[in-house]
Design a protein around this nucleic acid. Structure first.
Lengths: 232, 232
DNA sequence: TCACTAACTTAGTTTACACTAAAGCTGCCG
DNA sequence: CGGCAGCTTTAGTGTAAACTAAGTTAGTGA
């Protein structure tokens, strides 16, 4: 249909593929589906990627870079380590906003483990996870050094538990398990991990935030635990 | 080849399918693969299950029942609530022993989210997760009532965070991400959540266990993060 | 031992997958 | 205007998926 410079087309294909892989899985999404959704024909895909697997791996890699960028952006305005950690806890990349613009990308990583038999894909995912872990270890370490975060656990362990929780949360969200992660009072698992790590400090800040929230919106139960934007 | 009563064949097919779905994913594992691995021909599958999806859903359901049974068995000899909770933390069903007997079953649940577009499968998985959550809420509640576990968080939230962590851990294990969940000193994320919830009590028991381990095997590096426990 | 039931196979059908050869456009530079 | 670089399409290929009609074999009870 519409002409496009190669680089742009490639990005668009990745975007489209992200959406489809995320909803159908790797084996479930077909190349013709992807092509159609991108508004082109199949051979275009093979002009830009050697194979379907190649496309998928490219997507995993791009998602990794995106995530790091997202985090860095999220943290830009927060120099103080404990505050930075708090923001990371609240900004779980694994929970995509699947709405509109198409940032549901992260579900791809979760889908990737479908291909447990494919070493190349596994490798891409493992690299990705380790990159996230390294990033978090660094942040946790600095937060601990600042004195506001307990040194009871090593940064490695703390970072892993953050990844595990974030991933678990992301998986259930991706599966559409509704109301997971919250209780009837509206408490959220994010608060648990935040409070456990940051202690009193986190709780007070949360209470303030909730207060402000109540003042903006009317009072009411905060339904939908699964598909909340940017939470986890 | 060998004849088999229907019920037994059905179970065998479920076992085989579990193994293949777990490694190949839902769309990735084919009916002919499953049949061949089970030592029969394809139509046999369709004698026992209406469709591939039907087989998969049956598997999800059976896995749910198995997990509850496993947990109940694990807890049989532990009447004391805090001890029961501790055992649950250490016995994560999502981490399958894929060896021998075929208990790698749980990866199926993780794979299930591949089929995000299929409402029937999603439904089966959501039911499953909620069943596990209900079970855990009950246990956490009793542990809290016993006075040994902090009531800082509701049983619902605590149970969700256990599920999130367990699931995240399981996903990374299934993907073969090596060395996740531990640090150089050999500390484990399980210890983190256990200690956070059960406080001093958990740590002492762990130290005892590690002590015994050291006495059995040679000496190894051991870590101490020593700081005051915030839990009551 | 015969016959009946139920487990099982053979041999397909239809559909759709990943991937490709070759030719058709379209806009850009001289 | 003319040519050409390279994006895009048409029209396929071979393969393998889910699923099935109809027949074959084996155990079981009278």
């Amino acid at each position: 249909m519409t002409r496009m410079p190669a680089a742009k087309r490639r990005e668009q294909l990745l975007d489209t593929a992200a959406r489809l892989f995320a909803t159908q899985g790797y084996a479930g999404a077909t190349t013709s589906q992807i092509a159609r959704a991108a508004g082109v024909t199949e051979p275009i895909i093979y002009r830009h990627f050697a194979s379907k697997r190649d496309l998928f791996i490219a997507l995993v890699d791009r998602t990794g870079d995106d995530t790091i960028k997202l985090w860095e952006h999220e943290l830009r305005s927060a120099p103080e380590p404990a505050e930075r950690l708090k923001r990371l806890i609240r900004a779980n990349p694994m929970v995509g906003h699947k709405s509109a613009g198409g940032r549901g990308v992260y579900r791809v990583i979760i889908q990737a483990m479908t291909e447990v038999e494919d070493p190349q894909i596994l490798d891409a995912v493992a690299r990705h996870i380790k990159m996230l872990h390294t990033f978090l270890v660094d942040e946790v370490g600095r937060a601990q050094d600042s004195g506001h975060v307990s040194k009871r656990f090593t940064p490695e362990i703390t970072a892993w538990s953050l990844i595990h929780m974030g991933l678990g949360y992301g998986v259930l969200s991706a599966m559409g398990v509704i109301q997971h992660g919250i209780d009837q009072k509206g408490n959220h698992v994010q608060d648990l991990i935040g409070e456990l790590m940051l202690g009193e400090r986190y709780r007070k800040q949360q209470q303030q935030a909730q207060q402000q929230q109540r003042e903006r919106h009317g009072p009411g139960a905060s339904g939908e635990g699964g598909e909340k934007v940017e939470n986890g």
